[in-house]
């Protein structure tokens, strides 16, 4: 699988970008041990002028490079946590709906539709403005808008899997239906659901940035979205303050997409060889 992942250009590029981002996130506390929000030097220093602040400083004199590294932590953490939460909730709900069928299926799918007809970002925005901006709330809010996709895919898979022989065999030996659903059906339904993960991670990173941009992120942490919003007030005189974190955001999202593409290609080719 790994070998196949590296056989596609998307896989190589995506993995490389994600590895770099992960490295930046992990190394941030070592490279920039001070609080990235602390005032480190003169304000509005342009990039590549002072070796102490390679990417310059913002309106209050905070180091842009330190913000970029620490921001990678938040972006990746939020992206992965939100995607994990959405996939978990979606897979469980979808499996139960598909396996139980009947009234339970109807009820759960109507709930999912209720979430689907509200634009995901609006839902997230409303949730954060009511619950107050903090990292766990942001993660929960993004998951709230993203769990329906995995739920529908999981349900569709389960509908076909539950008719297979090994499931019938489990029934015959007297396994509890819940055990059958979670141990026999769900693991088999997961691969196509997982394929959604890259889309969800990328979406979550963007949603987190948009929330921070609107001032609904956690103000005690540096995030790329908040950096872009901060820079907007001085867009005409110091555009680099918005452009630099903007580029970071683009690179991260493209990286996640490429990685996802690579994984799908790799698994598809594995199926072909089988």
């Amino acid at each position: 699988m790994t070998r196949r992942l590296f056989s596609t250009p998307e896989g190589i590029a995506g993995t490389a970008i994600l590895a770099l981002l992960a490295l930046a996130a992990l190394a941030a506390p070592m490279l920039f041990p001070r609080d990235p929000l602390s005032i480190a030097g003169p304000s509005l220093l342009p990039p590549f002028h002072d070796p102490a602040h390679i990417l310059g400083t913002d309106r209050l004199g905070r180091d842009v490079l330190a913000g970029l590294f620490h921001g990678a932590r938040v972006s990746l953490a939020v992206g992965i946590a939100a995607a994990a939460a959405a996939l978990f909730v979606g897979a469980v709900v979808g499996t139960i709906a598909g396996f139980a069928g009947g009234f339970v299926d109807e009820a759960l799918m109507r709930v999912a539709e209720a979430f689907q007809i509200v634009p995901g970002f609006l839902l997230t925005l409303a949730f954060v403005s009511i619950a107050g901006p903090s990292l766990p709330v942001v993660v929960a809010a993004i998951a709230l808008g993203a769990w329906t996709g995995p739920a529908r895919v999981a349900r569709a898979e389960v509908l076909s899997i539950r008719e297979r022989d090994h499931v019938a065999a489990s029934r015959v030996v007297g396994m509890h239906p819940l055990e059958i659903a979670l141990r026999e059906v769900m693991p088999n339904a997961l691969p196509p659901v997982m394929a959604l993960s890259s889309v969800i991670v990328a979406g979550a990173v963007l949603t987190e940035a948009a929330l921070s941009f609107l001032g609904l992120g956690d103000p005690n942490r540096v995030t790329w979205g908040a950096m872009i919003a901060e820079g907007r007030a001085v867009l005409r005189s110091a555009p680099y303050l918005s452009i630099i974190p903007g580029i970071a955001l683009v690179v991260a999202v493209v990286g996640v997409y490429l990685f996802g593409e690579g994984v799908v290609e790799a698994s598809a080719s594995r199926r072909r060889y089988q």
């Binding site: 609080d35 929000l37 602390s38 005032i39 209050l60 107050g132 901006p133 001032g215 609904l216 103000p219 005690n220």
Partner: peptide
């Protein structure tokens, strides 16, 4: 934002609520 940093310099840990 500034006050949070200024307080951090003297060991007071301020959390901003927006």
């Amino acid at each position: 934002d500034y006050l949070r940093q200024a307080l951090a310099e003297v060991g007071i840990d301020a959390t901003i609520v927006n």
